[in-house]
Amino acid sequence: MDNKKSNEDLLGEHNSTSVIECAARCQRECNFYGFNPQTNKCRTHTKVFKSGMLNEGGWRYYSHVFIPVDCKDLQLDGYFNSGVYEIYPNGTITSPVQAYCDMTIMGGGWTAIQKRISGSLEFNRNWTEYKNGFGSPVQDVWVGNDVIHQLTKENNPALYVSITLQNGTTLYEMYDRFFVSDEAGKYQLFLAGPATGTLGDAMLDTRHSSSSLSGMYFSTPDRDNDGASGFNCAAYSEIRGGWWFNYCHMAFLNGPWSPQSWINPWSPTVQSGTSVKGTTMMVRRH
């Protein structure tokens, strides 16, 4: 291996506040990175160099440590079994997230942002709980709105939604683009088609403009950001859960598991919680 840099090896030089931030810049095409604490500069390279570079003008060089941002990264790195993995959506090794990865559906590489398989976990939660996430990726989970924002902010990934019925049938709908803003933007949802699948579209081009969810802010029982005037959809007795409500919804996967009160999980295909055995929401970057 060479022990000197060349312009062909250098991917870029950037300002950086720490070696951890520099490491986060070293994505899949980068095999080697350098950080200079005297100038707070970061260099990323395609080749690995010998230790002769270690004393070059305050620069310190490191072999790349793989930091998977999402399940797609893990799949590309050779992980092909579905299950719970550690990912780093904000690109730094200091903020790991436990997430369920589906490596089989439509080619795999999907990161689950919502999963319900038992109904044992209460989804009637406040703003902070939806912000930070709750539950376990092994069973029922909401990964957290901050994490969803990190997963979608740059890649506008596809969204895969599925509902498993009591008879064992699984129906799905896939949207081509899915993005959620940050907390300052009230976790606003941006959704784009085409929408394809067996569930039918209940989020985007619905029968009623007042129930289309694209452009809607996230609401919880203690934070009313919906399109309805006079009441909070998230606190309504037959809803009680966080979601991107309009006035109010034709699709709502975080409803009360009790079948008597969960109305329109996905209308008109699934109109009552009595039919639901499980749900998932997953994202995968293009």
Rank of each mutant, 00 (worst) to 15 (best):
N246W: 06
A158V: 03
F178G: 05
Q271V: 15
Q150P: 03
T279Y: 08
A158K: 15
T164W: 05
I148A: 10
T206N: 08
G200Y: 11
Y172N: 05
M174T: 13
D182N: 15
Y187P: 00
T220I: 04
E238P: 00
S211P: 00
R240I: 04
N264P: 00
E154H: 13
S272N: 14
A195I: 09
G200K: 11
W266L: 04
F190A: 01
L204K: 10
S229F: 13
V276H: 13
S237L: 03
L165A: 07
M281D: 05
D146V: 14
W243C: 04
N156R: 13
N232L: 05
S209T: 13
S162A: 15
R177P: 00
E238C: 01
L213N: 08
F179L: 11
I239F: 09
G215E: 00
Y217C: 00
L199S: 11
L159N: 07
N225G: 03
Y236W: 09
I148D: 06
G185I: 02
P157F: 08
M250P: 01
A192C: 00
E154P: 01
H208A: 07
L165N: 07
N225S: 10
T274Q: 15
K186N: 14
T279E: 09
L151N: 10
A228H: 09
G193P: 03
D205L: 14
S272I: 13
D222P: 03
A202L: 11
L189T: 02
Y236P: 00
V161S: 11
Q260E: 08
S261L: 04
A251E: 13
G215P: 00
F252C: 14
V276P: 15
F245W: 06
P265T: 03
M216N: 02
S229P: 07
D226F: 10
D176M: 04
I163E: 09
T196V: 15
G227R: 09
N167D: 15
T152H: 11
K153I: 12
L171W: 04
P221V: 04
T206S: 07
G168W: 05
K277I: 06
T196R: 14
S219V: 02
P221Q: 03
S258W: 10
A202R: 10
E238S: 06
P265W: 02
G193Y: 04
R177I: 02
F245V: 05
Y175S: 01
A235K: 10
T152D: 10
G241P: 05
T164L: 09
H249L: 08
E154L: 15
K277F: 12
A234L: 07
A234T: 09
P256N: 12
G241M: 07
